[in-house]
Design a binder for these strands. Sequence first.
DNA 1: GTCAATCACTTTGTATACAAGATATTAGTT
DNA 2: AACTAATATCTTGTATACAAAGTGATTGAC
Lengths: 218, 218
Amino acid sequence: MEQRSAVNIANSLEHMIFDGTFADGDRLDEVRLAEQFGVSRTPLREALQRLESSGLVTLIPRRGAFVRQPGPLELLEMFEVMAELEAVCARLAARRMSNEALEELRHANTRCQMAAEAQDSDLYYAENERFHATIYRESGNSFLEQESLKLQKRLRPFRRQQLRFRGRMAQSLTEHEAIVAALTSGDSNAAANALRDHVTVQGERFQSLMAGLKAAAS
Amino acid sequence: MEQRSAVNIANSLEHMIFDGTFADGDRLDEVRLAEQFGVSRTPLREALQRLESSGLVTLIPRRGAFVRQPGPLELLEMFEVMAELEAVCARLAARRMSNEALEELRHANTRCQMAAEAQDSDLYYAENERFHATIYRESGNSFLEQESLKLQKRLRPFRRQQLRFRGRMAQSLTEHEAIVAALTSGDSNAAANALRDHVTVQGERFQSLMAGLKAAAS
DNA sequence: GTCAATCACTTTGTATACAAGATATTAGTT
DNA sequence: AACTAATATCTTGTATACAAAGTGATTGAC
C-alpha cells in the first residue's frame, strides 16, 4: 500500500470502500490511515473531503469520517435513476447515432456474446459496461455521458453479483439485441423503453436478493 | 468576509464563482484567499478539493486551482439533462403523488402567479424553484430528488436571467398549469412531456441569448 | 452500589514550517 | 538584438506542531 499524493489516496480509499474493506458506519481513522499510506494527515484529510462530496463518506465535525454505504432503499432508488438515465441516453442516441457507432455497438455485443458462451461472467461484465458506455457516448451529450458513467461506477459493486444468477447472461444478451434493433430502426421510444427495462430488471433482481438476505438474517 | 471552517469556505467560494466574482479560467490563489478569509492555507485547500469534485474548479497538480465555468455547449447539455431529469421526476410523481402534495403544488403555483402579477422576477424565481422542488420530492425517489436539486442549483445563475425576457413569466405560468393538470389526472407521459418542454424552452432561450452575444461580439 | 462530575487521554481542526517543482528574470553568448 | 541557460522567486504539496473539542475512565458522593 505504497501510494503518494492526495488524489491517489482518494481513489484508493474509494476502491477500498467499494470492495468492502470498510463496512457501513466504519470510522476512518486519520492517523491510522495516514501511516498505512505512508503520508501525513494533511493529504489524507484532503482525500476525505473529496470522498465526502462524492457521497461515499459522511464528515461529522469534530467526530470524524464515517463510510456511508447506500442501504437497500437508496440502492433501489439509484437503480431507478440509472434506468431512467440510460433510457434518456437511448432516446437521444436513437436519433443521433451514426452508422459507424451502430457497428461498434454490435461489435461490443458480439464480445458480450463470446463472453457469455465462455461462461466468463467477469469478462461479460466488462464488455457489458463497454456496450452501455457506447450508448452513453452516442447520446451526443458529454455531460449526460459523464453523469451516467459516474452512476455506473457507483453501482458497479452491486451490479456485478447479479450476473452469477443462472441464465442472467443469456437473458441480458437477448435484451441487448432488442436495444440494438430499436437503435438501428431509430425508434427512440422503443430504445428508451428497452434500455429502461433492461436496467430495471437488475434493480428487481437486486431487490429479491436483498429480500432473501433479509429473510435469511432473521 | 469573516468566515471560518473549511466547509463554510467552500460554500462561500461556490457563491463567489456563481455570482461572477471569478471569471472562467481565473486562478484561485491560495495565500491570497486564505488571508481574505482570515484562515491558513490548510482549510482553504480542503475547500478547493471539495470544489473540484463538484466540478466548479479544475485542480492542476503543482499549478493551482482554476475556476471552470461551463461554456455554451456544456450549458446546453446541462439544460438538456435537467429537462430529462425533471421529466423523469414528473413521470414518477404522476403515479405516486398524494392529494395533499398536489394541493401544495397548486399553492406553490399560486405564489408564482402572485409574483408574476407583481412583476417581481426575483420572487417569481424563488417560488418557481419551490414549485419544481416539490415535483422532485414527489417523485418518491430521494436520490433523484437530490440529483435534481444539485443540477438546479448549478444552473441557477444561468436560469435566472431568462425571466427578464418580456412575457416569459406569463408563459411559464401557463406551462405550470399544464403540468399541474397532467399530474392531477395522473397521466405520467403527459406530465413528463409537459415538464420536459417547460425546461427545454429555457435551454432554447439560453441558446438564442448566447447566439445573440456571439453575433454582437464578432 | 450506582450515578455524577472531574480529569486524563484521544482525536479533530488549524497554523506554521519546510521541501520540491514551476515560473520569471537576468545574464551571457551567438 | 535575440535566444538560451542559469538562478532567484514564488507557489504548491506535505509534514509537524499546537489548540480545542470530545470521549472515556476514575473517583467521590449519595
